[in-house]
Write a protein that binds this DNA or RNA. Structure first.
Lengths: 342, 342
DNA sequence: TTGTATGCGTTATCAA
DNA sequence: TTGATAACGCATACAA
């Protein structure tokens, strides 16, 4: 039997083939690829030539097995189609595309149990880092994260008790700010309209409530929510419900921009003038908010930047220097537009 | 030195630990996990108990190394945030969440070169299947796909020459159908407005052109395009340009729904009545098209279903029975709405 | 700076 | 149906 031709492998060149061609030991090839600085100029060139000639590509599985560490970032988000998380994920991808790390993306469907399952699954790969959305993990999930043996970044929100690191902003403050803006603009019967009502939406609602109570304007009948997934269609329907319940409504703070857009369209359809009769504020500030007619006031959230920052923090931790501040508050910005310019 | 406690591993239980506890050989454990039918009832129960007790989870890296096959679906899309591809990806995830397969997602940023790079990278993992968006791969990419040694599904479009399998619909027919609808509705000076202009948009444009020429209505000045990424904002701007170039415009077929929405908002802003003065048709039929005021006619495309079908075809191929029809045309549907109801 | 021996956790091969 | 043995391709530990 020849040793050169393995019988199980697909015949792709291995590190041994490269070593033979370059006339060096296999480990030197390995080093030349991972820490070029530790291999002499001359050998490095020979090795690079051999790699080129053979078209050698390292096998990530063998690498992971031997080093007990996969070059993988595990990323868990509640939704793949929600633009908010898509932007976070895009930021993560853009930050990682240069390096050696792959990304393992998981969709939790807003389910804590599913998150647990995926965490279990991802953990079996010994990932280099874990990025998870939100701060409301189940105790079991928290436990899995703590014992993952790698940097962990919770994203989108901030809170007092990070598993390891956090990047995000305060949804409570965001909700409060949006509501205060409506109050300052002169609106009084301000409703809250929210769909899905995940933990972040709950906190925006809490912010709304705080602002309204402070101004002595709160009335539970002003709040219209549903656990149903958010959509523009739903925004329209919820607004109708809210109006039926409370015909004197003169403003709405929406859970997110989809809902806000649905409200705007319904106003058009019902000939309700915006911002005169009704003021509208959205959340997230999607591209279309600025273009809508009238343009819609919204809270701009740094989704893409959160993704980038999460990777930067994880990378720093991997390199051995965890950031001093374990919680990064990236804030938000109120974008005042026509929909509240009464 | 004890053999039971490996010194490099993180101390997680291995298949050998399970085997020892169950009093069987390691390979029997392996079989019990993968092909339970080939292990006797009794041993299987013992093994299951041992797995449970130890909390054993197979190491996917070791598995991939030993079997020369990773349980991974490689998925390449041009964008993570474009709702169209997000839906395809969601379909893929939903179809794969039950089984043993992980997903390796790559973002090509609409770049053929980036696609090549990622294909090279993904290939090194010996994936179980590859799903790629579009049918315009570079020769190098096609080559990589052909030699990947696994099922390949090209999605979103259909064409005459699949690398292996295809699921999608004809964008040319879609563009033609949209344009014909405008013509049938009585519009004559019908513009085409398109951003990004990737291959699929190009074919929609070709469909537009075919329909216009057939009706003797084509005029190159009716076409307004840009390679800039699509957005609602851009839709508004392009519509302004189109109108400046061709003030007698009475209809527009938009590249996609974002553009269409931008056009609609600009019509509101400029007090151009829709559908009386201008008819609008979008493409993809996002949720909001139906809710918009006026609601917007669009071509409904089966994105989610494409993702599901692609996985189904790949799974069938893996199981040894490639579908008879290698090209699956899932079609599209014209949704007539107020924006063209003149 | 470079190489040798060995182990990583699993599955394929082949024999029992 | 079950098991012993030998890969799989690479990196760690240690020696030179």
């Amino acid at each position: 039997m020849l040793k050169a031709r393995s019988r199980r492998g697909g015949g792709r060149p291995t590190i041994a083939d490269v070593a033979r061609l370059a006339g060096v030991g296999a480990i030197t090839v390995s080093r030349a690829l991972r820490e070029p600085g530790r291999v002499s100029e001359e050998l490095r060139r020979q090795i690079e030539a051999a790699v080129e000639e053979l078209g050698y590509v390292p096998d990530p599985n063998a690498r992971a097995l031997a080093s007990a560490r996969a070059e993988v970032f595990g990323v868990l988000v509640p939704s793949l189609t929600n633009n908010v998380f898509a932007e976070v994920v895009r930021g993560i991808y853009d930050s990682l595309s240069d390096g050696p790390f792959r990304i393992q993306l998981g969709n939790t469907h807003y389910s804590g149990l599913e998150e647990e399952r995926l965490l279990q699954l991802f953990g079996s790969q010994r990932p280099a880092a874990l990025i998870v959305a939100g701060i409301d993990q189940t105790p079991a999930s928290r436990n899995l994260l703590q014992n993952a043996g790698c940097p962990v970044v919770q994203v989108m929100e901030i809170g007092p008790d990070p598993v390891d690191m956090m990047v995000g902003f305060s949804h409570l403050d965001g909700g409060r700010r949006a509501t205060e803006h409506l109050i300052e603009a002169g609106y009084r019967r301000i409703g809250f309209i929210g769909a899905r009502m995940d933990p972040r939406s709950q906190r925006r609602l809490a912010g709304y409530r705080a602002a309204m109570q402070k101004a002595c304007l709160f009335d539970p009948r002003l709040v219209t929510t549903t656990p149903v997934p958010s959509s523009v269609t739903l925004g329209r329907e919820l607004f109708r419900d809210a109006l039926a319940k409370m015909p004197t409504l003169d403003g709405v703070f929406c859970n997110n921009d989809d809902i806000a857009l649905g409200v705007l369209f319904e106003c058009h359809r019902a000939s309700i003038s915006v911002p005169t009769t009704i003021g509208i504020v959205g959340f997230n500030d999607l591209d279309m908010m600025e273009v809508a007619f009238p343009s819609i006031t919204s809270i701009r959230t740094p989704r893409y930047e959160i993704g980038r920052r999460a990777v930067a923090m994880a990378l720093a931790a991997i390199a051995g220097n965890r950031p001093q501040e374990r919680v990064a508050d990236l804030g938000f910005e109120l974008k005042r537009r026509e929909s509240t310019a009464r």
